[in-house]
Amino acid sequence: MRITGLTVYQVDLPLREGAYKWSGGKSVTVFDSTVVSVQTDAGLTGWGEVCPLGPAYLPAYAAGVRAGLVELGPQLVGENPLELAKLNRRMDAILKGHPYVKSAVDIACWDLLGQVAGLPVCSLLGGRYGEDFGLYRAISQEPPEAMAASVAGYRAQGYHRFQLKVGGDPDVDIERIRAVRAVLQPGDRLIADANTGWTQHEAQRVVRAVRDVDVYIEQPCLTYEECLAVRRNCDHPFVLDEVVDGIDMLVRGKADLAMDVVNIKISKFGGLTKARQARDLCVSLGIGMTIEDSWGGDIVTAAIAHLAHSTPTDFLFTSTDFNSYVTQSIAEGAPQRQNGRLAASTAPGLGITPRLDVLGQPVWSC
């Protein structure tokens, strides 16, 4: 089988809650997502998606995805999409860095591999663990009372994991953490996610002030070194996210005992191939994981579900269902939340069929 062409679509994904807010006053109201189809000489088409969380979260932005695909796509024509390790080496040789650009192509090729094998992607990624898996809900940054009310509402929908967006004024963040913890029950998990928003001294203040609260602390500061300093003065379980962008950081973090949990974002690693490699290393090292991506719609959610459902249950800290946050569906067959839980499709490949009427006209093809 050979790649005969790539087609790129752009689609807007408005948020159900109107806006998503996190540290530093950053917010997004509509996500700019890129969908990629990979066509083959066998008549099969694979589908992928990548959606950065705006231009100010990670070194990735929506227009950059599409610009990178213009560089990358033509040189992939003629390659075998089923030889995923080889294809990833080829993409890295064509375009240095920019892993998020390559993510949708890699996901589309996993979709093709599943179609050819007649198996769901999660079976190819290692096998399905259990009937489903638990999700977290990200809680947009608001005043403490509003965030507590939001958490209570989502708890009633079946969620038991909550990622609280903090990283603002430390005094207000302390109130946010305490207000939300007060509405939770035993067994619920609360993650205070600063998204790099605190300075080191601010982070130290917060973790000391909530020492008696059952809460995970996630990515308090911008750099690994600052996070490690906070970790070494913190009684809480610790999560790293933004600084985890490759295998080297996982090995370093384990050696330094820098974290208990890491967030594996598919597009930050460059697709399912490398995210799986990171996932499997974490299992070997005994590190818990949140399996997710930066953002996305139905196709990203399907890819997340397959990677999460094939992760050993003991190491899957939580995952997410981004398609429930947005108002626009872009594919049929995507997994849908049930009582705060999600399951990967049992159909071959990703198990999705894109809604071409929603995707509209391609913005580029080769």
Rank of each mutant, 00 (worst) to 15 (best):
R176Q: 08
E71A: 11
L82G: 10
A62I: 01
K254L: 11
R176I: 03
A93D: 15
V151R: 06
D92E: 15
Q10R: 15
L272C: 15
Q328H: 08
L119Y: 01
P55G: 04
L69R: 04
Q157T: 06
D314L: 08
E202V: 13
A149G: 02
F315S: 07
A194H: 07
G286E: 01
L125I: 15
M289F: 11
A347M: 03
Q157S: 12
G25M: 13
A156R: 15
S294V: 11
R205G: 00
K165Y: 07
I291Y: 03
D32F: 03
R211A: 13
S23W: 07
Y9N: 00
R189I: 04
R161D: 10
L44I: 05
Q141L: 05
R341H: 13
V121N: 02
K86D: 10
G64H: 13
V8T: 10
D212F: 05
P14A: 11
Y325A: 09
N263G: 13
G253Y: 07
A275F: 15
W295G: 03
R205S: 00
S294L: 05
Q204K: 12
E79W: 12
R178N: 10
E142H: 10
A308C: 08
R232D: 07
V151Y: 01
G126C: 12
P14S: 14
W295F: 06
E131M: 03
Q10G: 09
R176P: 00
V151E: 10
E142K: 07
V172Y: 00
T273H: 08
G24T: 04
P143W: 14
N323Q: 05
L76A: 09
G73K: 03
F133V: 09
A255S: 13
G46I: 00
A192R: 02
F315N: 01
P354K: 13
V35C: 04
A303P: 02
V172Q: 11
L359G: 05
G340Y: 05
D169W: 14
M289L: 15
N233C: 08
I264W: 11
L342T: 04
K102W: 09
Q277S: 13
W198T: 12
Q328V: 06
V210Q: 00
V358Q: 06
H309R: 03
G134N: 06
A308H: 02
R2D: 04
L58H: 03
A331F: 14
V363T: 13
V166Q: 08
L285D: 00
Y136C: 06
A104S: 12
S324R: 07
H201G: 01
R16F: 05
V28M: 15
M91S: 13
V77D: 12
A344S: 12
A209D: 15
S365W: 02
K268N: 12
G271F: 10
E226Q: 10
F238H: 05
L124H: 14
R137N: 11
D32Q: 14
N263V: 09
K265V: 11
Q75K: 09
R16L: 14
Y100F: 14
S310D: 07
A156Q: 09
L95A: 11
I247N: 00
E49V: 06
G18A: 10
A347I: 00
L135M: 02
S123Q: 08
D214R: 10
A146D: 15
L112W: 01
L95G: 07
C51N: 11
Q157I: 10
K254S: 08
Q200P: 06
V11C: 00
A344P: 07
T353D: 09
D193Q: 12
A149L: 12
T320Q: 07
